[in-house]
Each structure stands twice: as C-alpha cells, then as structure tokens.
C-alpha cells in the first residue's frame, strides 16, 4: 500500500516520516523512533501499557494509526522528565515502589500525570476509578495508587 507522509511532534521534536497507513502509533514510536518506553500489552486497547498523551490527553497508542496524527503533539514516557531529572510522578513511583515487574509502569505514569492534571488532590477512590483502563498483573494496585496520590501532591508543589 502506498506510503503516506505524516508530520507530527513527539516529545517536543518534529518528526516527518513516510509510513504504511496500517502502522500503529505504538509501533511507530518503538520501531521507527526507537522510543521503547511505551509498551505493547494487548493491542486491543484494554490494558493501558501503551498509554501516551495525544494533544495533552491520554490515549492508547495501540488504537491509533500513526498516519492519523498529522499536526498532533504526542508525549511519551521518554518526554516527561525535566532537565533536573525525573518527573515528579516518576519520582513518586520510585519512592513508593509503585511497580513490580515494571511492564505496565510507563502507562501508569502517563495516566497518573493526567489524573493529577485534572484533579487537584485526587483521593484513592478517584485514582482507582481513573485507572480503569490500566491493568497491572503484579501489584494489586496499592502502591500505584499511593504513588499517584504522592506524585499529584508533588506536582502541585
């Protein structure tokens, strides 16, 4: 099938590529840009491991075609740290050990940042409800919820 040229921004950097229309965003990120922090779990938008931010809001990159993103801004887990090191949400996951195997963690952090952006001081019930679309098979979520609460608190300063 004919390749299609697409230009969009990934972690603040403009990217132009000619892609096969069937290329999923998650494959584009991992295989073309070598940004392998975004993980592939289910390929059917259920698990949330591939969560990125699309124009500032969380989206599942396995359910997006790269070709659809002309002009869009995408942020991946590689793009959240600042010049001084980890993003406060990443630091909170480290501090509160919000992971075991780590596979779901990039998606959890991206979702956690969005939860903190939309809720001033998210309580446990809010965080658990907002995490409906992110599955973790290790932790039982306890430390993930604690990490997001702490990360949200640090993000407010």
């Amino acid at each position: 099938m004919a390749g299609v040229s697409v230009t969009f921004t990934v972690n603040g950097r403009e990217v132009t590529a000619t892609v096969d229309p069937r290329t999923l965003l998650v494959h584009f990120l991992r295989e073309h840009l070598k940004l392998t922090g975004t993980h592939i779990g289910c390929d059917t938008s259920q698990c949330g491991a591939c969560t990125v931010h699309l124009d500032g809001r969380p989206a599942k990159s396995c359910a997006l075609l790269a070709v659809q993103l002309e002009g869009a801004e995408v942020t991946t887990i590689e793009g959240v740290a600042g010049p001084d090191g980890m993003h406060p949400m990443q630091a909170a996951f480290k501090e509160h050990h919000g992971l075991q195997c780590g596979f779901c963690t990039p998606g959890m952090v991206m979702m956690g940042i969005d939860i903190a952006n939309r809720h001033e001081a998210p309580d446990e019930a809010t965080i658990r409800r907002e995490l409906e679309g992110n599955l973790c098979r290790c932790t039982g979520y306890h430390n993930i919820v604690a990490s997001i609460a702490a990360g949200a608190s640090s993000m407010r300063g």
Binding site: M1, R22, C62
Partner: peptide
Amino acid sequence: MKPPPFDYCCP
C-alpha cells in the same frame, strides 16, 4: 504489522 494492509484517505 498488526493490521492488514489498506489504503488511507483523509478528505
């Protein structure tokens, strides 16, 4: 590639 091949239009 997960999806099968297709052409793409964005009118």
